[in-house]
Design a protein around this nucleic acid. Structure first.
Lengths: 338, 338
DNA sequence: CTGAAAGCGCTTACAG
DNA sequence: CTGAAAGCGCTTACAG
């Protein structure tokens, strides 16, 4: 790799002039600029990221904190972010945030504080007070996407409204015995699953119906399968249990809903004949499964998060509306109860 | 963020000593080292990545070139890479490589040449001669994972063997009329889909069977659905066409196979009753679909690619075996023909 | 419009 | 074992 100095020699100017010609900052005669650019092109010169960063204090890289890269939803958001950052010349530094305490400490105490990024985008993560403190002390633009903590300004879908919408759809079809598969928490700031559960219960209460069962679970397809199995089980400890299966299930994600559909199939139940199922996300498979769902356009969410970061960094990008869109898509997994 | 200098003042030593104490390089009395570390800890000092990189020429970041972050397979590989790099203190710089010519030029001519990474891992990508030249001139360790070009040393699954294994399974069940859904190329180095097609045809030839039809396609679930629709269509341009549907299909990926299964269902065909289907990957959904497939453990592939990069960078990691494992998993999507 | 020089915050060969 | 100083490759305020 050639250096600024070589370009300067070849163009017969100072390194300061080369820097100006290449960055476009500062006044320069057109002739000089052209000469320098030609020299740089001939040498195939590219500015060193580290040297430039050290001198300017800007890295042109954005840190993205992801909980689970291998979940469909986050992979899509990440793709959306990447598609937006690349044209602006920003790189992505990817931080996979696990539950491992040592790894998290390393991430917050060291990695993020090394000054490698100009801004941070955090996806659906929860941070404890210490972690949040670190993020704030970074002094960088911080963009949350579905992050529960109110200290972190966040783009978000109105998840209570999402859940009300899904639940209302089932209620309108005539269902009363509706179960919810998701997650819920009492302490702390309500996270996305908790908001969805609240929306579900609000909708049920609004219709004067006592919610049917709630099964708490993680968010893989496997988990959805297990949770639905739980709902459909009519025995406990070998003893028959006196309870009906619900006529409809609101699952807090499409992947949970897929698992639930597989479990219904395994139990010999027809969807929507015996049981209706609604999800949330707009997963690429939802069409194939005929799953009624509330779409939330994760790719577009990623684009918006990137725009928010770029705008905060002074790039010529309009700051996006923090309220993210969603939309009920009715397919064949929901129908009136028998 | 405090600087080396502040730590030096507080510990009453020179900045050189602080640097040595913190990096562990160079001889130092235990007392001094302890004093410096205490001072650094009190100040919450973290070495600046850019300054350190400029001085040492090492960034402790690895560039990962990904074709499609939002495909299940690549998202899993990426997760595997991340899980391995983090404990060694390496960051990931993520480059989403699209087909957009301008973006690719920008990536290869500028982004990668800015000196932001110590090594490059490339996933299943094809590079033209110019791009390959750039990669080689970077002078960095280069790890390919399923990259077709022989100039790029690559960890790979023996994809011909994978396809032979899948096809042999169908042949052993008694199928003769087997179609393949995938992709194939004549020019250039054979990429993964092409290897699979070759393996398929080799297996068919070995059994003395003329291969049934081949449908070329991209690799989404949607594409699989379309390709299978193609295979099952018995009319063309409104006219009936004289051909039988195959009794079995070998799909070059699980996602294609899922699409094919949905298409079979849409056509009223039973799997495996009317048609057997095999895939490749070991997708998290394959169990639910009962899909017989050749697993290839993408997460572990990512771990190995990361290990290869780390080993090349002199980290204390054993260089992995470049031959990646795979395994036929027989489920309920394959059975003898009627 | 252009250049000389200081500075960004580290690391390391060289001395002692 | 420790320090003074040069150097990594840029950028930019200051002069002219």
């Amino acid at each position: 790799m050639s250096s600024l100095e070589e370009v300067a020699r070849r163009a017969q100017v100072s390194t300061a002039t080369v820097s100006r010609a290449l960055s476009g900052r500062g006044r320069l005669s057109d002739a000089t600029r052209a000469r320098v650019r030609a020299a740089a092109a001939e040498l195939g010169y590219v500015v060193s990221a580290t040297a430039s960063s050290l001198a300017t204090g800007r890295t042109r890289s954005i840190g993205v904190l992801v909980p689970l890269v291998d979940r469909w939803f986050f992979a899509n958001v990440l793709d959306g972010i990447a598609s937006r950052l690349a044209p602006h010349g920003y790189d992505i530094t990817l931080y996979n945030v696990t539950d491992d305490a040592a790894q998290r400490r390393q991430l917050f105490q060291t990695s993020l504080r090394r000054g490698r990024v100009d801004a941070v985008i955090a996806l659906s993560l929860e941070f404890d007070a210490g972690e949040l403190g670190v993020l704030e002390q970074l002094g960088l633009p911080l963009v949350g996407l579905g992050t529960p903590n109110p200290r972190l300004s966040s783009l978000r879908v109105d998840d209570e409204a999402v859940a009300r919408l899904a639940t209302a759809h089932l209620l309108e079809l005539g269902h009363r015995d509706i179960a919810h598969i998701g997650r819920s928490r009492d302490g702390g700031d309500p996270d996305i699953p908790t908001m969805r559960r609240r929306g579900f219960e609000a909708a049920m209460a609004g219709a004067g119906v006592v919610p049917a069962r709630f099964v708490a679970t993680d968010f893989t397809i496997e988990d959805g399968h297990r949770a639905m199995g739980e709902l459909l089980r009519t025995t406990a400890g070998g003893e028959p249990v006196d309870r009906r299966a619900p006529t409809a299930v609101f699952a807090a994600s499409d992947e949970l809903a897929f698992g639930a559909m597989f479990a219904a199939r395994d139990a010999g139940l027809a969807v929507p004949g015996d049981i209706s199922i609604v999800g949330v996300d707009g997963h690429e498979l939802s069409g194939f499964f005929g799953l009624t769902t509330v779409e939330q356009f994760p790719h577009a969410q990623g684009e918006r998060a990137a725009d928010a970061a770029l705008a905060a960094l002074g790039e010529d990008v309009a700051p996006p509306d923090p309220a993210l869109p969603f939309e009920l898509v009715i397919r064949s997994s929901t129908a009136p109860p028998r």
